[in-house]
Amino acid sequence: MSTTLPTPVPVSLPETEEFWAATAEGKLLLRRCDDCGIPIWYPRPFCPVCGSFRTSWSEASGRGTVYTFTVVHRSGIPGYREALPYVVAYVELAEGPRVMTNIVDCEPDDVVVGMPVRVVFHDTGQGSALYRFQPDPTATDDGS
């Protein structure tokens, strides 16, 4: 079941140091472009839409819907291979970006496209946490 998923430690690069530090405090940050306003994903101090280097952090709502997913039945990845089957998904955040993640805290077979989800954090014990998503029972039924 999903609660047993491993928590590999993300490699922190200079441009993502603050992002990972925030996850350890239960915050999902989005880099935003100060010029065109668009949320940037994956986080980087450069806007791939308008080319601006003027960007800053803001906190995401942590809510979204499942854009697509797969239930993984075969895996050779240590930690994950002991947790089969598990769900890899793209979640479309309320702010727009589609982020790769896992869906947890439900049966893999219950996951559907469009399902409302909210973020949960799984601590790595190394100053960071993995942002994963669980079904969001508080969401209004407007997932697409």
Binding site: L5, P6, P8, P10, V11, L13, E15, T16, Y42, P43, R44, V72, R74, S75, G76, I77, Y80, A83, Y86, V88, V99, M100, T101, N102, L130
Partner: peptide, 14 residues
């Protein structure tokens, strides 16, 4: 160690 690889390497992409 490029950001794209980091952000996709955590979730058990088999």
């Amino acid at each position: 160690a490029t950001p794209d690889m980091v952000f996709e390497g955590l979730w058990g992409m088999s």
